[in-house]
């Protein structure tokens, strides 16, 4: 990654794809109250994505607005980390993704709130409060599922094992960026470790660290997600909605 455009786009795509996945839970959540909670988090991510995409478009200066960036790029042009595009799978996998993403986004947005770029700082200041809420929500469920029933423990551990390798990509060093993701890892570990312990879960010890999202090389899942998300917009070129 280099330059504020790429950096901003990467953050925007993380938020956008996370929102798209979370919104898939609508009408499907384990309890009606949770349907509302997941929609709230999806709305937060979508809101942050829109601010970031709009700003990325301005930085680029090529006249692309939030919708042009969201709907008219192909998967190879998306810069999100692989973790957010992974399928929702069961509720435990979704909570593992939510928890890990929030544990990364909270220190990220917090650092961003103090950065020199005023626009990014403002977005960071707003999104930071939302991330704190997401982290809280993710941690709450990781604990309940980890230390709930035998079945929920088994599922939660499997989910952590499945998602954990994808967390490493979030912290790939980028010293030139407004916030170097590598500097966020200690804050992430500090939050994640104790929650997993309290949840009676084991932190995986996997050396596998799939990556490529920041360079536009994704899993097979992203193209399907985009095909669905973009189909209507692309079917009517130039139309207003």
């Amino acid at each position: 990654m280099n330059g504020p455009f790429d950096f901003t786009l990467a953050l925007a795509d993380d938020a956008l794809i996370a929102a798209q996945r979370l919104a898939e839970w609508t009408t499907r959540a384990p309890e009606m109250e949770e349907d509302i909670a997941l929609a709230n988090i999806a709305l937060d991510q979508l809101g942050a994505a829109r601010l970031l995409l709009s700003y990325a478009g301005e930085l680029e200066g090529a006249g692309r607005d939030e919708d042009a960036l969201a709907y008219l790029r192909d998967d190879r042009e998306f810069r999100n980390a692989l973790m957010v595009e992974l399928p929702n799978d069961d509720f435990a996998v979704t909570m593992a993704k939510l928890f890990f993403l929030a544990a990364y986004q909270l220190p990220l947005y917090t650092a961003l709130a103090g950065c020199a770029d005023e626009r990014l700082a403002a977005i960071g200041a707003k999104a930071r409060k939302e991330s704190a809420y997401h982290l809280d929500h993710g941690a709450l469920w990781v604990k309940r599922l980890g230390d709930g029933t035998e079945e929920s423990h088994r599922r939660m551990q499997a989910a952590v094992d499945q998602v954990w390798p994808y967390t490493h990509e979030l912290f790939a060093a980028d010293p030139a960026a407004p916030v170097d993701p590598a500097t966020l890892r200690p804050a992430f570990d500090e939050v994640v470790g104790p929650v997993l312990t309290e949840a009676t879960l084991t932190q995986p010890d996997s050396a596998w660290a799939p990556a490529g999202g920041r360079a536009g090389v994704h899993t097979e899942h992203l193209a399907y997600l985009l095909a669905e998300m973009q189909v209507l917009h692309r079917a009517h070129p130039g139309a207003k909605w």
Binding site: E31, E33, I36, A37, N40, K129, Y133, D136, H137, L140
Partner: peptide, 23 residues
């Protein structure tokens, strides 16, 4: 009113349902 298995979740659900998390 609302349903929740424990106080922490009840508080969380209350915030989502009745205040849409207004600060």
């Amino acid at each position: 009113s609302l349903h929740a298995p424990d106080a922490e979740l009840a508080l969380r659900n209350a915030r989502d349902l009745y205040t849409r998390r207004q600060e």
